[in-house]
Amino acid sequence: MDLNFSAEDELFRLQVRDYFKNDYPKDIIAKVSAGKSMVKADYQRSEQALAKKGWLAVNWPKEHGGPGWSVVQRYIFDEELEIAGALNVIPMGLLYFGPVLYTFGSEAQRERWLPGILNSTTFWAQGYSEPGAGSDLASLTCRADRQGDEYCINGSKIWTSYAHFADWIFCLVRTDPASTRHDGISFICVDIRSPGVEVIPIRSIDGEHHLNRVEFNNVRVPIENRIGDEGKGWHYAQYLLGHERTSYAHVGARKAELALIKNAARTAGVGGSSLLKDPLFASKLARTEIAVKTLEYTTLRILSATQVGAAPGNESSILKILATECAQAVSTLMLELAGADGLTEKAVSLPLSERQGLSGAMCTEKYLFDRAQTIYGGTTEIQKNVIAKQVLGLRS
């Protein structure tokens, strides 16, 4: 694999960089940099600014509304977005459901739902995990019973990110109660405002409201809201999970965070001394930089084998492990850098250095939130099983 970018790719990078410097909403970048909580309107305005440029659904093929970029251009765009400090898109519609919809959905379904995703007027949530079915998703029990031209859905979904922002939720539900494991699961879309749907907030350990529990009590859903064939939902879910696990890479964000850590560490030691001269801290920083570089090369390798719009396959589990462990390593360094300042209250915390844009509270919040990274989206243990069985061909 050639790791050098072509002259055309570097010119594209400059164009993307110029856009985020001059045309992307500056107040959103400032809000991200300050570690402030985002509301739905922030995401919508950010995504609509990208949509106006034609740069929102960057992983979609051109025939479905994407820009038709190469995998290298997509990688460069994602990296520059995060280095600029812009807001990442909410992935459920754009990165997860969209590819399933244009690959397996009917023409009527594509006409109905793709435009709202592409112009960020319709937000989606993902109904996968349940109170008794997390990493072992095949054991889900949320039921959709066929009643004439409708399904009647009963059950619970949990850890549902941004369901409080969503207009629709796509769910894995069991349409054949006599089936076990992967059989009899269907992929159904539900208007989240339907009678019988209740969204219950879950506050995470960082104090933020990202997550929810979603209850379904006799929710009526027309049959035309089912994607593909009845009982084939697990197949569509596996396609989606390839896109989901690849989206965790965030190489640009890790590079930007390491740059902040280095800058702040120069004056963060006792008496304003440089933590970079501390052998233990310097060693941890070096190991983390190597891990991020490994993540970058692995991301490029997996993307280079992927056609535009296609799912990366089971190799994405490798990337998911590397990406989430890198995120935790970086946030651990941040917490160590913050020291006692990390214990200050969010409302009164002072920057470690206003020039570097880090505060103790931000470091602590990131550390706490990142503890979940090796759990959500399929635990590290589950990913290792996938790699052993599906990539290496091993059997117990």
Rank of each mutant, 00 (worst) to 15 (best):
D2I: 06
E10F: 00
L14A: 13
D27K: 12
I29Q: 15
A30Q: 14
K31C: 10
S33F: 06
S37D: 13
A41R: 09
D42G: 09
S46W: 02
A49H: 06
L50V: 08
K52G: 12
K53I: 02
W55G: 05
W55M: 09
N59Q: 09
P61V: 12
E63D: 15
H64V: 15
G66K: 02
P67K: 02
P67L: 03
V72W: 02
Y75G: 02
N88C: 10
N88G: 11
N88W: 01
V89P: 01
I90K: 06
Y96F: 09
Y96R: 00
F97G: 05
V100M: 03
G105F: 05
S106W: 03
R112K: 14
G116L: 07
I117E: 04
S120L: 04
Y128K: 08
D136T: 12
L137F: 10
S139G: 13
S139D: 14
T141N: 09
R143Q: 14
A144E: 05
A144T: 08
G148T: 07
Y151C: 04
Y151A: 02
G155A: 08
T160V: 15
W168Y: 14
W168V: 01
I169R: 01
I169L: 04
L172N: 09
V173N: 05
V173C: 13
R174K: 15
D176H: 10
S179M: 08
T180F: 12
R181F: 08
S186F: 05
F187E: 00
C189D: 00
V190C: 07
D191Q: 01
I192Y: 01
I192G: 01
S194T: 13
E198K: 15
E198Q: 14
D206A: 10
L211N: 11
N212C: 14
R220C: 04
G228P: 04
G228W: 02
G231D: 07
K232T: 08
H235R: 13
L240S: 07
L241R: 13
Y248W: 13
V251Y: 07
A253F: 10
R254V: 03
K255I: 10
I261W: 04
A264V: 15
A265Y: 03
R266M: 09
T267C: 08
V270T: 12
L275V: 07
L276E: 07
K277N: 12
A282P: 01
A286L: 10
R287C: 07
I290F: 05
T294S: 08
L295V: 09
E296L: 08
T299L: 10
L300K: 09
S304K: 03
S304R: 05
A305V: 02
V308P: 02
A310W: 07
P312A: 09
G313F: 04
S317M: 04
K320A: 15
Q328A: 06
A329E: 10
T332E: 11
M334N: 03
L335H: 02
L337F: 07
L337D: 09
A338S: 10
G339T: 07
G339Y: 10
G339E: 04
G342Y: 01
L343C: 06
S353A: 15
S353V: 11
Q356N: 15
G357C: 06
A361S: 15
F369D: 13
D370R: 08
D370F: 06
R371I: 00
T374D: 04
I375T: 13
Y376I: 13
G378T: 08
T380M: 00
I387P: 11
Q390I: 00
S396D: 15
S396T: 11
